[in-house]
Amino acid sequence: MVSITKDTEKEALLAKFWPQISRAAAGYENRPALSDELAQEMALSVWRSLEGFNDQCSLNTYIYRVIHNTAIDHIRRHSKISEDELDEAMLCESPTPEKSALQAQRQKQLIVAVNQLPLSLRQVMLLKLEDLNNIEMSEVLGLSEANIGVRLHRAKEQLSKLLAGMN
């Protein structure tokens, strides 16, 4: 397979992965303005990295690696301040019409809970929520499948506790 160099191909791939990109950005950054900025940074990184893709792994794995590497870079450059206040502000936003309002509230709770997971658990959780299997996750993260299994178990446990604490 050859690297992806044409702008139209890159644009199409980005459009395909944009939902995953924006969700991953929300999972790493719950400050709305910075979350949008991170999503754009991720899109830019994917765009610039596509030319370097040469079948060293699957394209899916490659793109997830770029997305999550950009997030780590973001964490290093933007330390989190007064997270608790932000979490509360996010949860207290008044939702609109009933059923979708409940769904929106649950989504916000999920984003806040994911954001509160320790980084090593958050990474596996974000990939699992995107339906990646353990083999794919081990390729993205560079960890053994056994290690992924352990982390995933812990991540699920912690996420359950966090969500229960919010209800």
Partner: peptide, 17 residues
């Protein structure tokens, strides 16, 4: 269920590259 809830979050418009 959690995964589908996660994947159904509001889609933001894609930035102009």
């Amino acid at each position: 269920q959690l995964s589908s809830l996660w994947q159904s979050t509001d889609k933001k418009p894609m930035p102009k590259m």
